[in-house]
Write a protein that binds this DNA or RNA. Structure first.
Length: 857
RNA sequence: GCCCGGAUGGCGAAAUCGGCAGACGCAGCGGACUUAAAAUCCGCGGACCGCAAGGUUGUGGGGGUUCAAGUCCCCCUCUGGGCACCA
């Protein structure tokens, strides 16, 4: 036996390694221990969910923090008598597995499954209360077959479709990315990799179909952080405006001063071509002095075919736009344009406006065309200034200076706008839109910034898209009874670009289910955000082989009561999964319109002032912390060091401090457990003595605080601080516990409750102490302690007395002292009398139970 | 440029509704126990003046409201994050 082991064996020191190993083994032998009960249990259901991790192989501190929050909540809810669903799974498809395959020559599947095993072990080591019977692994066919099933359902409804478009291409990922996955023009996985634009034919999900509902739904989610709701609102980007058609004028291009003049409406012939613009300011139509088209606009393409100069301008602008977009600084691009040589007719005035192309007009927003109103739009102002285009002011604030451009609408009215002059802007918009609609050349309309979700990926490690291309029948979905389309094994993975699956003839060559002829399989795979868009439904019946999930089970458990994760998914995962929920509702699979009732986004884990990352070399390994201080102390520090929504600075000394605290509780319970066992279930004495009162008061104040915090504030840092304060009081009364001055019934009452209060935060140590107190049942099924308001109440009040707002003394009063008693006591205090001597008391503020303030002169 | 956070001791932080600023923890200092150390227990820690009692001052900066402001209002600085030519 080593010297250390000898020491350990003979004292009562807290040894987390021993305790945690012992309980981990017992818990592993009881897989039903965290099992949710059936709906028939009659208990209120509570679905607590943490975002599922990508199985990189190693948990990091961000995970530990996320799971410590969720686990504390799950345990608390259990103790509150709820039927809790607390599942975990693996977001197991994705690029790192392919990169690892190239680097280590390990098949992605093998690499991923191995990582899952080690991360699961880490999670179990942390003592997290997951019901592993519902584990979901997205890269397994029994899961991804339902991705395929959903894809086909969406295809049938026109919600999945194929189109050629300009897409974001990350050279490092060697695949395309959705708009949501491009951050500042760079890949979300490679923040130093500028995304290229490529023209490819791709599969899309029609998220725009639900744009309005996704927006409206945000108002039904008061328990989501405002920040997330705002980000989603901005991302969806609803814009109310109008479309307005400008007729293109025929004949030889009429050259004014190279397109810098507005020509009168006389004797014109129309070509039949129309330019439809989108504007939010139709009220400024009389101030339009040109029409601006995106260089990719179809009309421009037509004109450029017969106009080499224009062609050159277009190509140049496209090149600039591309470079700026790829540089991530589209806004910084200098405005640049060219006259097309064509004119279009303002439908309200009949005047002919020069048509320009401009590099700041986006082809993929609105109609790719605008009317330019330099007097009332900053960008148009800048553009007109550069090219000498006319400026016409049509909005002004009467009596004000009205420096151009006039952008505000406060108190503004239309001028020089025909019969609409004098109207306020908003009213003018309504009337002009109606007039345009009546005339057949426009209408009020709404544009969204949200685009359809591009889901094709030219990668191997993802869900195969279940579609076939038949020479005769066209695009044909794989029949349901042939699902899943299995991802073939032993595929050579390259970083060349192009789908690896295309290199596998056995996969590509198939038979058309319609005509029986030869067909080619789709070789792209699905974006992995598809996997995470609905995984939490699968948790409710993960073994179901006949449906993505059991309808009844989903109806019982949904919506998720509390979803917890990082804010980085605010417009990725969290918009996709809201979209998916709405689609599933329309498929009749569920009845809820939103996936999660409450959302909590925890702060980042920081070390030395920066987010932990390999490149900064400031990563703290959870395993190392657990090895040194135990899982309980590691988890608890993650809750103690900061409120959960704020960033957390990891300080190892702090973990040691939490560990010392746990040791203190452990020793205290050990030392007095005999007295507690002796008292058994005996009730508290009717009349606690003074020593007992002090201890009971602190205890019940603590229970009250933690209970209230779990119910709304979630400031676990102050909860843990409150238990520390309680323990400090208990340690101070140690002798009185030992001597019997505090009676065994009280000792039993106190010890049991201290253990219960710590149970959501330190499952291992509390399990050990609970057994030490003679309890055989698990803590999860033990009711959370109730607080006794009478015991929590202070017997004596300390009231600060201020003179002119400055603290002068503190007086002691009976707890129920009213205003007159406070007034009298304050005026009777000798220090107060000394301070006000020779002065006149002008005013006396007495706040019952709080303070007294004397205003003197 | 626009929209959100944040700024409090040497450090992480607390103060929930405008009412004793700094709970709790870390680090530090002093003491007890010990042959000694570790562990543990007790005590002291915003700054300045003072032997002390006590006083002055203090929550990024400047103004304001109030008997009373870390907290509310106005202006500014720094910092983290999100969005960014969306017509």
């Amino acid at each position: 036996m080593s010297a250390q082991a000898e020491t350990d064996a003979r004292d009562d020191r807290y040894q987390p390694a021993t305790i945690e190993a012992k309980w981990a083994e017992r818990w592993a032998a009881d897989p039903d221990m965290y099992a949710a009960e059936p709906a028939s249990s009659g208990k209120p259901k509570y679905y607590v969910l943490e975002m599922l991790p990508y199985p990189s192989g190693q948990l990091h501190m961000g995970h530990v923090r996320n799971y410590a929050i969720g686990d504390a909540l799950a345990r608390y809810k259990w103790m509150q008598g709820c039927n809790v669903l607390h599942p975990m799974g693996w977001d197991a498809f994705g690029l790192p597995a392919e990169n690892a395959a190239i680097k280590n020559n390990t098949p992605p599947r093998e690499w991923t499954i191995g990582n899952i095993a080690s991360m699961k072990q880490q999670m179990q080591r942390l003592g997290l209360s997951y019901d592993w019977r519902n584990e979901v692994t997205t890269c397994l066919p029994d899961y991804y077959r339902w991705n395929q099933w959903f894809f086909i359902r969406m295809f049938e409804r026109g919600l999945a479709y194929r189109k050629q478009s300009k897409v974001n291409w990350c050279p490092q990922c060697a695949t395309v990315l959705a708009n949501e996955q491009v951050v500042n023009g760079c890949c979300w996985r490679h923040d130093d990799q500028i995304v290229e634009l490529r023209n490819l034919e791709q599969w899309f999900f029609r998220t725009t179909e639900y744009a309005q509902e996704l927006l409206d739904g945000l108002d039904q989610l008061p328990n989501w952080p405002d920040k997330v709701r705002t980000m989603q609102r901005n991302w969806i980007g609803r814009s109310d405006g109008a479309e307005l058609a400008f007729e293109v004028v025929a004949g030889e291009p009429m050259q004014g001063d190279a397109g810098k003049e507005i020509l009168p409406a006389s004797g014109v012939t129309l070509t039949g071509d129309r330019i439809t613009v989108f504007t939010t300011r139709i009220d400024t139509i009389y101030g339009a002095t040109s029409v601006q088209l995106a260089p990719e606009h179809p009309l421009v393409t037509g004109w450029a075919a017969g106009d080499p100069t224009l062609r050159e301008h277009v190509d140049g602008m496209l090149e600039q736009q591309k470079a700026a977009r790829e540089g991530g600084d589209l806004a910084g691009l200098e405005k640049h344009g060219a006259f097309t040589g064509h004119y279009a007719q303002n439908p309200f005035t009949g005047e002919l406006l020069p048509v320009w192309i401009a590099n700041y007009i986006l082809a993929d927003y609105g109609t790719g065309a605008i009317m330019s109103v330099p007097a009332h739009d900053e960008r148009d102002w800048e553009f007109a200034g550069k090219y000498g285009l006319p400026v016409r002011q049509v909005v002004e604030v009467p009596g004000a200076e009205n420096a151009l451009p006039v952008l505000g609408e406060e108190g503004a009215v239309l001028v020089h706008s025909g019969k609409w002059s004098g109207l306020a802007c908003a009213e003018a918009r309504a009337q002009l839109s109606a007039e345009a609609a009546a005339g057949g050349y426009g209408r009020a309309t709404i544009t969204f910034r949200l685009k359809d979700w591009g889901v094709s990926r030219q990668r191997y490690w993802g869900t195969p898209i279940p579609m076939l291309y038949c020479g005769d029948c066209g695009i044909v979905p794989v029949p349901d009874d042939q699902l899943p389309v299995l991802l073939p094994e032993n595929v050579a993975i390259t970083q060349q670009g192009g789908s690896p699956l295309a290199q596998v003839p056995e996969f590509v060559n198939a038979t058309c289910p319609k005509c029986g002829g030869p067909a080619r399989r789709e070789t792209d795979t699905m974006d992995t955000f598809v996997d995470s868009s609905w995984y939490f439904y699968r948790y409710t019946s993960a073994k179901d082989s006949t449906a993505p999930f059991d309808k009844e089970a989903a109806k019982y458990w949904f919506p998720i009561d509390q979803y917890i994760g990082g804010v980085e998914h605010a417009i990725l995962h969290l918009i996709y999964s809201r979209f998916w929920t709405k689609v599933m509702r329309d498929l009749g699979l569920i009845t809820n319109a939103e996936p999660a009732e409450r959302l909590f986004t925890q702060g980042m884990v920081i070390k030395n002032g920066a987010k932990m990352s390999k490149s900064k070399g400031n990563v703290v390994s959870p395993d190392e912390m657990i090895g040194r201080y135990g899982a309980d102390a590691t988890r608890m520090y993650a809750l103690f060091a900061a409120p959960p929504d704020r960033d957390l600075e990891w300080q190892e000394d702090g973990v040691a401090g939490v560990s010392r605290f746990l040791a203190k509780v452990y020793r205290f319970v050990q030392r007095h457990s005999a007295a507690a066992l002796e008292a058994g279930d005996a009730a508290l004495p009717e009349q606690p003595n003074a020593d007992e009162q002090v201890v009971l008061r602190k205890l019940h104040q603590c229970i009250r605080k933690i209970t209230e915090d779990f119910n709304d504030r979630w400031h676990f840092n102050t909860c843990i601080a409150a238990i520390m304060e309680l323990q400090n009081v208990l340690t101070g009364a140690d002798e009185r516990f030992a001597s019997g001055a505090i009676r065994p019934e009280v000792t039993a009452h106190v010890l049991r409750r201290v253990v219960l209060l710590l149970a959501p935060f330190a499952p291992y140590m509390t399990a050990e102490l609970w057994a030490e107190l003679g309890e055989s049942g698990g803590l999860l099924r033990t009711p959370w302690p109730a607080f006794d308001e009478a015991l929590a109440k202070a017997s004596e009040l300390e009231v600060p007395v201020q003179i002119n707002g400055k603290l002068r003394t503190v007086i002691k009063l009976a707890a129920d002292a009213g205003e007159p008693a406070m007034r009298e006591a304050a005026l009777g205090d000798e220090r107060v009398l000394a301070a006000i001597e020779g002065k006149q008391v002008v005013k006396m503020i007495v706040v019952p139970g709080k303070l007294v303030n004397l205003v003197v002169r």
